[in-house]
Every structure is written in structure tokens, then in C-alpha cells.
Nucleic acid binder design. Sequence first.
DNA 1: TGTTAAACGAGACGGTACGTCACGTCTTCCG
DNA 2: CGGAAGACGTGACGTACCGTCTCGTTTAACA
Lengths: 210, 210, 210, 210
Amino acid sequence: MEYVNKGIDLDDAHRTRPRSELAKVAILRAASELLAERGLRQMTIEDVAARAGVGKSTIYRRWPSKGSLALEAFLDDFLSTQPAVNTGSLEGDLRKALSAWVTTVNGTSTGRSLASLIAEVQLDPEMGFAWRENFLEVVRAQHRQIVVHAIARGEIPSDSDANLVIDMLFGPAYHRLLHGHLGLTQEFVEGDVAMVVAGAKAGAAVLSRH
Amino acid sequence: MEYVNKGIDLDDAHRTRPRSELAKVAILRAASELLAERGLRQMTIEDVAARAGVGKSTIYRRWPSKGSLALEAFLDDFLSTQPAVNTGSLEGDLRKALSAWVTTVNGTSTGRSLASLIAEVQLDPEMGFAWRENFLEVVRAQHRQIVVHAIARGEIPSDSDANLVIDMLFGPAYHRLLHGHLGLTQEFVEGDVAMVVAGAKAGAAVLSRH
Amino acid sequence: MEYVNKGIDLDDAHRTRPRSELAKVAILRAASELLAERGLRQMTIEDVAARAGVGKSTIYRRWPSKGSLALEAFLDDFLSTQPAVNTGSLEGDLRKALSAWVTTVNGTSTGRSLASLIAEVQLDPEMGFAWRENFLEVVRAQHRQIVVHAIARGEIPSDSDANLVIDMLFGPAYHRLLHGHLGLTQEFVEGDVAMVVAGAKAGAAVLSRH
Amino acid sequence: MEYVNKGIDLDDAHRTRPRSELAKVAILRAASELLAERGLRQMTIEDVAARAGVGKSTIYRRWPSKGSLALEAFLDDFLSTQPAVNTGSLEGDLRKALSAWVTTVNGTSTGRSLASLIAEVQLDPEMGFAWRENFLEVVRAQHRQIVVHAIARGEIPSDSDANLVIDMLFGPAYHRLLHGHLGLTQEFVEGDVAMVVAGAKAGAAVLSRH
DNA sequence: TGTTAAACGAGACGGTACGTCACGTCTTCCG
DNA sequence: CGGAAGACGTGACGTACCGTCTCGTTTAACA
């Protein structure tokens, strides 16, 4: 998590300065609030510093950019809402995972924050790695387990491409979130899940098609 | 196309204002180049004006924001690369449409411009409508025909949800473009298409599910 | 009056274009109003054009700058308020001339317009000549007659410097108008006049002091 | 000196903020130079910032307008050239004071700067107070002493109006500076002084006339 | 009376400077 | 002596007018 938070972990490891983590917490809290209230573009470092009761340099000492701060502020909030799932069937797992995501994201400030951050990743090349490392891979690792379990259960071929299955499930959902052309409805969730289940069971996601 | 271009096209059609469209063309060209060269964030209105040999006010007279200018500059470039398809089979059509998109977008400045614009849409609420109207719906209307034709051919149920099918095809592709976690490879195209075809033929995309 | 009004007079003399003097009148009227309402700095050519119901180029065709337009708009208004005087005594003439000026100028929009124009003369070198020619010399020629008459009456020495006498009378008055440090009161008028009369009668204004 | 310099001097006196006064000095120096070189209208804030090696916002943080900056830049330069005088006679004092002013102002960039600032005062209402407080009253307080001394010496009546006497001396001089209709010659100085001396000694400047 | 050239209103054009904003860095001074 | 407070240099923003320049459209003198 170098980009998001540079070097703090080392210091923590040395346990030489466990003290003004208060500042860090206050900053993340302020950033989180402002991100939810105004969106990333209207959230300024100066606002965050003011609300956190902190000098700007204290922020710049820890985060190299507004985006990286927003990312860290967003992460915990978001990740805690995405449960590991294990319902006993592929269909159940996919439905539960996607439903949780839709619930968290549809029409909420979390949804707008997520969209803001994905936007920031496009505009700031430095953000790409941190985003994939700290957000995307964390979520995807969890989701890939759904496919692993389905293979273990024998529901789908053992050479199914977990990455593809996961992208088939969440890709359309992110698509609707970001473009806003259609709603993230219950019908959408059902349709998306049904398509993925049908495709995966038919073996359409097996690897090395080349 | 109100946001992007306030009625100019209509007037032009009537030939009532054949005046200095030179400026408009020069501006769009300069914007297109700078968008490709630097991305949306590093493209400034002042740079565009300078390169187009135009005053800033001439730009602000026509476009209300950097994003709307970039959108219009991007549109023609992009849309001309997305052919209407009709290969005679659902699978062929989907493969051809997705391949064309991947070719245009994967690793190209067009791809980065597209990502930049999707980002801008998240950050500037005013952009949302213009984006859906001028970009997304134009492309999607074309793509929905693929489903219409497949239904006509009897390949898939007649109550299949064209919007869902299209989002299942392109959602994962946009997902990979924007997050960069996995490549837009030939394998991905084949897998995505196979999943959609299997799901649609299995009737997983039929409407009014609940 | 080249600067203020270039070449129109000649054309008028030829009587070849007696037509849209309406425009000129409307422009001068609008300029005069806006000058009085807002002062020279807030009066813009575009405002004048709009209020006069005239295109900007019609203004630029006749006047080379905002200042020159304002000057011409101001002139007639002002000059008509400054009567020739001949009371039969130097003191009476000076008092009457100064009083007329103070009445026109003290606390009035005319006073602010006059100050605005004197300001413009300092900032736009092109204005200097036109100002002296069309405003200052017109007024001063009239005022110098006061001194001429006083000499003729034998009230003051025949080699008195009319320019100096006039500057001694009006200089302090303009000073107070422009700096606003003290009011243009009746007491001021009386004191100024008394000083000038006493000095002139004492022969303090005789020429060629070398 | 609120307008010109919002309280900085006081703080400096307390030595509570000995920080980057370098910027202030550099800005005033650059402004002073540009004012002399080009006059107030052609002096832009951006030029001043560039020459001072300073950001525009650093200027706007201290001065609310171009005029107020120019005023402060002008003040020290000018005031140091106007000596207190005490020659032992009214005539000597008046001559010396007026001569010093004429020497500083006649045909010099200081003279043009002075004229520019008087112009600015007319056009920007916010400037009026600062101008009188920081420039005019400073100079006039000094000059009024000339009259006080003449009264003490018994040269002129004890109820002579010092303000009127000073305006009679300098009013005509400013008049010629601003209108440029006649030169600020040695003859003018002698004549002006002679008029004021004669008038004052004759008791023409006594107060409460009406 | 019909033709034609000018002057007209309208307002877009290329520019310049404005004053504001937020950036990320640097300095001061307090606890 | 670390951190809050906030000034600094930077540079893009969007605005306001500038003075110039096409545009059709009157308009009025001449043909």
C-alpha cells in the first residue's frame, strides 16, 4: 500500500511513534465525510485539513495526492460492506455477492464515491496501481472463491476461468453504475446472475480457448 | 445534443449561418489532438485555444466546459470506428462488435480518451446527460439490433432483454478498460462472447423475471 | 476637433450625408447618461452601443476611444453651464465665474464626469490634445476676458498675466474637486476670489518676472 | 492606512511577523519601476508579479487593487522628496516648498506617476480615502506649518486659513500638471508665490468670511 | 423608379488582463 | 521539536471588454 500510505507501516513496526495516529484518523474521517458530501472533485485538501483540524502538510506527509487519500478513506468503509459468501450453490453465491454490491452502491453516496474514485484512476496514472492493489484485488480475491467453490462442488467445469466469470458478473454492474443508462434493479441482478450461471455451467468460461 | 453543441448543427443544416465554422473545426481538431496526447486532465482550454489559433472566449462561447468540448471532439473519431454488424449469427455479430471495440480501444489513445471521458462524466454531473445522449445511446442503439436480429432468426427467445444482453457483452469489456486488472485479449473476447451466447440461448436474458 | 470627431464636419459641410445623424445623437445621449450614471470606468462601449440601439462599429467609426466619446458627450452639457460674465468689476466677474463652475460641479454627476475625464486625460496620452483644444481652451479663453476687462478698466496692471490669474482662480477649485480633501463651499469661493483680487491688484501677477 | 496596507505595519512594529517581507519589498520595487516606465494603465498586476518573482495571489493577498499597490509604491518615493521648510519668511517657505514640488514633478516619471494616481482616485471610489489619508494629508500637514510659522512671525493675520493658503499655492500647480496647458516654469513659481504672499498679507485668507 | 454602394445593427472573432481558486511546498511559531 | 496555521509560487480557471471583422439589411442618391 505504498502509494496510499508511504512509510507509515514501517514506523508502526518500530513502534516508535504510536502517538498522533489521532491525526491520521481525523484526516481519514474528514476525507470520508467530504467525499460523501461533495464528491471527489469538490473535496479539497484544504477542506479536509480544516475539518480534521490539521495542517495541510500533515496530509501531504502521508498521502501524495488527493486521490490516494480519498482511496484510503473509501476503502474500509466499502470493504466492510462486501461479505464473503458461501450459500452452497454458485447461483446463490453470485446473487448474494452482487446484491450486496448493488445495495451498497445503488443511489448512495458510497456509490458516488466509488464512481469518483474509478474516475480518478483514469485521470491520475499514479493511482492505477494503488487502486488495483488495495481495492480491486481485495474484492476480486474474495469473489474468485465463489468460482473455486463451484468447481469444487462440480457445478462448473474445473478449468473455468474465475476471472472471466467474475468480470461477467460485475462488469455489467459497474457499467450501469458508471454510465447511468439503466438502473441497478432487482431484475438486473437476476438477469445478470442467470446469464453468468447459464454460461458457466455450459462451459463457456473454460480457459485456454486460444 | 444540447450540451455538447447548442443547436449549431440544425442551423447549419438550414445554411442560415455559414460563418466562421473554421474556428469550430480548428478547435475540435486541437482538442482531439491534445486529448490523445495528454489525456483530459492535462488538456487545458488555454492549450486548445493556442493550438487552434483561437481566443479562449471563442471556445467558451460554444462549450460550457472542458468535458463537453472533449466529448464532442471525441465523438466523431470514435463512432466512425464502430461498424454496424450483420454476420448472420448472434455469435458472429457479438464477436465482430466486441472485436471492433477492443481494437479501437485496447492500448490506444482512443482508449485512454474514452476512459478519460467516462471519468469526467462521474465528476461533472452536467456531463451525464450529454454523454448518454450523444455517445452511449448512439452506440447501444446499434448494438441492440444484434439482439433484434437474433430474435428474428429464432436463435434466442423473443422476449430476450436486449439491454441486458448488450450490457453483458460490453460491461466486462469496459470493466477491464477502466480498471486495467486484466487485458482485453482475444481470449477475453472469445470467452465473453461465448458466455453471452450460451446465456442468451439458454433463455437467461428473458424479460420480466420476478 | 480631429480627435473627438474625425472628418464628420467636412462631410457635413458638403451636405452629402445629412442622414443618420440620428445614430450620432443617440450615441452621445447614451454615453452622456452612462457617464453620469456610472462614471467613465464602468461605462463600456458595449453598454453605450446597446443603449443607443447601435452597433459597436458605428461608434468606432466615429470615435477612436471611449475617452474621446465621453469627452464629446460631456462637452456640450458642460459648456452651456459656464456663462460669459461681465459684472463691471474684477471681483464680481471672478466670483460669478467661479460660482457658476462650483454650482455645476459640486456634488453633481457633472462634477464626477469632469473628474473622470481629467483622469482619462492622464491615462490616455492621445486624449491630452483633444482635451486642451476642445475643453480647456474654450473655457479659458472666456475666462481670460475677465482679466482683459479688468485691465481695460484699470483695476489691475496692464501687464498682468491673464493665464496666471485664471489658474490662481480655478486651480484651487479643481484641486478640491479632484482630491476631495475640502469642500467647494461658499467660504472657499469668497476666499479664493479675495486672494486672487488682492494679489492681482497688488501687481503680483505681472508678466516677465524672468 | 487600511486600504493601502492592511495593518501590516503595526504587526511589524510589534515584531510578531518578521517573515517574508522580502516579497512585499520586491513587489513594491517592481510596481514602482513599472509605474515609472509605463504609467498606471500599462502597468499590469501580472507584470508586477513576474518582475517581482512572485505569484499574483501574493499581491492580491496584500492589496485589493492595482491602484492601492501603485499608491503604496509611489508614496515613499515621493514623500522623501518634499522637505520640511523653514527659511524664516512666508515667501521663502512658499517658494522653497513649491520649487521642491515642481522639481520633483515637472517632466519626470514621478510627475506622471502622480498624475496617474490622481486619475486612479477619480475612477476608483475605494481609492479616495487612502489617497487623502496616506498622501495628501501627509503633505498638507507639513505645508500648513508654513502658514502657522508666518502667523507666529506676525507676517499674516492670526486668523488666516491655512488650508486656503496651501490650496492657493498648490492648486494652480496641480492644475498645470494635470492639464498640461502651461508649463511649470520658474516664472510660474514666482508668480504663484507672489500672488499667495500678497493675498495672505492683505488678509484675504482670513477665516469666517460670510 | 430601380439600382447600387454606403452605412448600418448585430454580434462573433482573436486577444489581454482580470481576480479567484486550489494545488503542493515552505516558513513561522506555538505547545 | 513536531505540527497547526497559513503564506508562498504556480498556473488554469472562467469573465469582461477590448477593438476588429464579417455578416445580411436598410437606406438614400443617382441612373
